[in-house]
Design a binder for these strands. Structure first.
Length: 889
DNA sequence: TGTGACCCCTAA
DNA sequence: TGAGTTAGGGGTCACA
């Protein structure tokens, strides 16, 4: 009987490999985990790919494929090594030291590569010898996250004959039955790329409540959501700790989520669960351990338990992301932090920020610092609280559209979902660059093979700002500046002209010479990998932008194209950073510095020409230019509200003012468009971004505010305290009002407000919750729960956030490295200043008083920088009156 | 009181 | 063994 087949589309979550057999009979099977478009979870066993590395002669090479017999023999001898299956080649490949003959050395298993690398590194140049084997699937078959497969069905979840199912899986190259709906087997060729589609992923969010006095888990809750349908189910456990852990594990297996989340699970819940499983499980008792924490989709046996990553139990090495076989672990805390940059990072604060209407509903007066007491006196309330905290991460992920956005990144970067969710920028770039190198006869250098970058490269140019109000400013931006420069000048690892390289330009070869003197080949000689990829990404982005426009009536399609175009943008902008880094495999220190040199050259050129034309440039940063539009000096940019109002009711003078203002705006817009057109060059397109009726800065770079009047109406603030998450709410609000007054040129109201607000602080009339300061705090959590701050800080106790963190820890509250710690300054007279940690669950944060003078001075200092432009210093604000000059009578 | 080291966070 | 970059403002502390 022919085996049953399954074909369809699915989304890849994770990939790992499995080594089979010995010697000549060895094979490597890839275990690809994912979720089908039709809803099933699956494990696909892919056969036919073999691990390899590439080798070539060491040093400079200019003889092409003209290989001396001794070298050919040496290459062939490699095949006799124990771990090597075969040597093929040579093939001519581009390297930074010439076009070299490169042999492909196929090895028996991926795990032999590190040793082989060490043995060969003295005698050979090694290429692609540090690419994880699992990555080969997507690289070699040119797949992204979304694929189509036609495969043989090996096992189904509902198969009851355990023994025969296990045999079938084993015969298909699997390690044992997989905890999925469908186990499939195919050869590599049966996998094909598919167009992106929304994978009906399933997400499980969980939360634990734990004792402070012992480390015990008191209760747990979990919510499972199907993103395809939006359906949710809630569960909770209490009582015996073992049964809580076993209950959670059963739920994971039964509900079979693709993504596991929670709030701060990376640094709290998962480490705690793993610790408790260690305590509760008998040493060496695999069955007990699996029942407690065996959450993975991979085989439930002792072998899998020993894996260092992607195991059947959650694992993490160092401070990296958690891995779990076949599923993706994603911390909602981290995602919310990245997407929102909230001033405080507690679950309560983030929820209140996103769901302000539900604030009261969500209020629950469980005091986490007295959890044992709470648990003893009213466990039902605690469980309810736990259920709520398990559900909130799902609401947050939904609202921020995290999963769909990560899926778009995975589609564009052509990586498994897990890499898009938890991977690094260089992994995304690697995915695109390596696969293109492999198809362009470019050898893939190893990470760390480049000479280390000495010192920093010079970055973008920032123009001095002239303090004060500037009316009618056109803001022009270079479109995708760094990517355009890389494309326009063909900047790539593979196009740099190096004196050590045998290929040298001759007469008539077109070259791109950076302002630093570094030379790059023209495109007629060779198009660089990076320019090729960037051009492709730009075209993709245009397609998705067009798709958005065409999908006006179809919200789902519009959102899809928006996610995709945004993912493309993010990826394009990541190239520069990775190629300017010191460690990336395809980089050289001249690449980054050439890009920024061209950027400075372009922007300074435009600034110079504008000024020569008589158009003052009031500010410029990296890729933007703020130009004064040639508009009648007498037309003020700030049009007071009342003028508009009385104009509407017929006042003739006011109508004249409004008309003049509208005329000035039109003139500025025309000017902006005209400049953009005149100054755009092929590889440096200048766009008219925004028109400001007024621009204000107190004279510091990267700090300004403007009133945008084209193409939208909004206030644009950059750099000022209103933008900072380590400021306090009262300062943020005050500053915002003051900036509004500044733009409206309402000096008197501005000063009056500043004085009143400073006075309110001096007199202690401001509620403490508006004075909370929050700063990130790093520290290494030791095994026993204590924290070492000295690794992160030269002088830990001189930092207020460390002192506040210590207060929290003294109360038994958890500390997690990197999270913001909130506090209020109680006495700045002491050195160092005294602070009180803000305790979310307690009334008024558990804070009794604050140092009004400190806050008043800090507000005066911040606001004073702005009032200075209106004649009032910070000291004047503190005093509430202006100091009469020494020379006045 | 001024200065520099150290740190956080932002603009691009 | 783990990794995007530089420019820049401003706060706090320690020390002369």
């Amino acid at each position: 009987m022919d085996p049953e087949r399954w074909s369809g589309r699915f989304g890849i979550l994770t990939v790992r490999y499995r080594s089979l057999g010995e010697g000549d009979a060895s094979a490597t099977v890839l275990e690809v985990f994912g979720r089908a478009e039709s809803g099933e979870s699956l494990c696909l066993l892919v056969h036919g790919l073999r691990p390899h590395i590439e080798v070539g002669p060491i040093g400079r090479w200019s003889n092409g494929l003209d290989v001396p017999a001794s070298l050919q023999e040496a290459a062939e001898r490699l095949a006799t090594k124990d771990d090597v299956r075969s040597v093929t080649g040579p093939q001519l490949k581009w390297t930074d030291l010439g076009w070299k003959p490169v042999w492909t050395v196929e090895v028996l298993q991926p795990h032999v590569v590190p040793d082989l690398r060490r043995t060969l590194s003295g005698a050979w140049s090694l290429f692609a010898a540090d690419v994880p084997f699992a990555n080969r699937l997507l690289l070699d078959l040119d797949l992204g996250m979304h694929v189509h497969v036609n495969a043989e069905v090996v096992d189904r979840r509902d198969e009851v004959d355990e023994e025969s199912a296990a045999t079938l899986v084993s015969n298909a190259g699997g390690g044992g039955r997989y905890s999925v709906d469908l186990t499939l087997r195919c050869d590599a060729e049966q996998l094909l790329p598919a167009d992106p589609f929304p994978v009906p992923l399933r997400v499980l969010s969980f939360d634990l409540e734990t004792s402070i006095t012992h480390e015990r888990v008191l209760c747990a809750a979990a919510v499972v959501e199907d993103l395809g349908t939006g359906n949710r189910h809630v569960y909770d456990w209490r009582g015996d700790e073992r049964s809580i852990l076993e209950g959670l594990t059963s739920l994971v297996l039964d509900s079979d989520p693709d993504i596991i989340t929670g709030y701060n699970i990376d640094n709290f819940d998962l480490p705690r669960l793993v610790d408790r499983a260690d305590v509760l499980g008998q040493r060496g008792d695999a069955t007990a351990r699996l029942a407690l924490i065996g959450w993975g989709r991979t085989p439930r046996d002792a072998n899998d338990l020993r894996r260092q990553r992607d195991a059947v139990v959650p694992r993490r090495s160092g401070n990296r992301a958690w891995t779990l076989g076949g599923r993706c672990i994603m911390d909602t805390w981290w995602q919310a932090r990245m997407a929102l940059r909230p001033q405080r990072e507690t679950l309560g604060f983030v929820s209140a920020l996103l769901f302000p209407d539900d604030a009261e509903l969500r209020k629950m007066d469980v005091d986490a610092s007295k959890m044992d007491e709470e648990w003893a006196t009213r466990p039902d309330v605690v469980v309810e609280y736990c259920r709520r905290d398990a559900a909130l991460p799902l609401d947050i992920l939904d609202t921020l559209q995290v999963v769909r956005r990560k899926e778009a990144v995975a589609a564009v970067g052509k990586v498994p979902f897990e890499v898009a969710a938890n991977g690094s920028t260089s992994q995304l770039i690697d995915s695109l660059v390596i696969r293109h190198a492999d198809r362009s006869s470019v050898a893939v250098p190893m990470t760390g093979s480049a000479e280390p970058k000495e010192g920093q490269i010079t970055g973008g140019y920032v123009h001095d700002v002239e303090a004060g109000l500037h009316p009618w400013i056109a803001v022009l931006d270079f479109k995708s500046m760094y990517p355009s420069i890389m494309i326009g000048h063909n900047i790539c690892y593979t196009t740099r002209v190096d004196p050590a390289h045998p290929d040298q330009p001759g007469e008539g070869d077109s070259l791109n010479v950076a302002p630093t003197g570094v030379r790059f080949w023209g495109e007629n000689h060779r198009v660089g990998l990076v320019p090729h990829l960037l051009r492709d990404l730009m075209a993709q982005r245009d397609l998705h932008k067009a798709g958005m426009r065409d999908a006006v009536d179809n919200e789902a399609a519009r959102a899809f194209h928006d996610d995709m175009q945004y993912a493309v943008k993010i990826l394009m902008n990541s190239f520069y950073g990775v190629f300017a880094s010191g460690f990336y495999r395809f980089t050289h220190r001249d690449l980054g510095s050439s890009i920024t040199a061209w950027a400075r050259h372009n922007i300074k050129g435009v600034i110079g020409e504008l000024e020569a034309e008589g158009h003052p440039v009031v500010y410029s940063d990296t890729d933007s230019i703020f130009v004064r539009a040639p508009v009648d000096e007498d037309v003020p940019g700030a049009l007071p509200h009342h003028v508009r109002a009385i104009a509407a009711s017929g006042d003739v003078d006011a109508q004249r003012s409004v008309k003049a203002w509208e005329g000035a705006k039109d003139a500025m817009v025309t000017f902006g468009h005209d400049l953009a057109r005149r100054y755009s060059k092929e590889s440096a397109v200048l766009e008219f971004e925004k028109g400001l009726s007024v621009f204000f800065s107190h004279g510091a770079k990267k700090r300004y505010v403007g009133q945008v009047v084209w193409p939208s109406d909004e206030m644009l603030i950059r750099g000022y305290e209103t933008q900072r998450t380590d400021s306090f709410a009262f300062l943020v609000d005050t500053m915002h009002t003051i900036l509004e007054h500044a733009l409206a040129d309402e000096g008197e109201s501005l000063i009056a407000h500043a004085i009143a607000q400073v006075a309110a602080l001096k007199e202690g009339r401001v509620e403490a919750h508006r004075l909370i300061l929050a700063k990130s705090c790093k520290g290494k959590v030791r095994k026993d729960g204590s924290v070492d701050f000295s690794e992160a800080y030269t002088n830990p106790d001189s930092m207020a956030q460390v002192r506040a963190a210590r207060q929290r820890m003294a109360l038994g509250l958890p500390f997690t490295s990197g999270m913001k710690v909130s506090f209020v300054v109680t006495d700045a007279g002491h050195r160092p200043m005294q602070v009180a940690a803000w305790l979310e669950e307690q009334d008024n944060g558990g804070v009794e008083s604050y140092d009004g003078r400190f806050y008043a001075e800090r507000l005066a200092a911040a606001v004073g920088r702005i009032t200075e432009a209106f004649g009032w210093s910070a000291e004047d604000l503190m005093r509430g009156s202006r100091q009469t000059s020494l020379f006045s009578f």
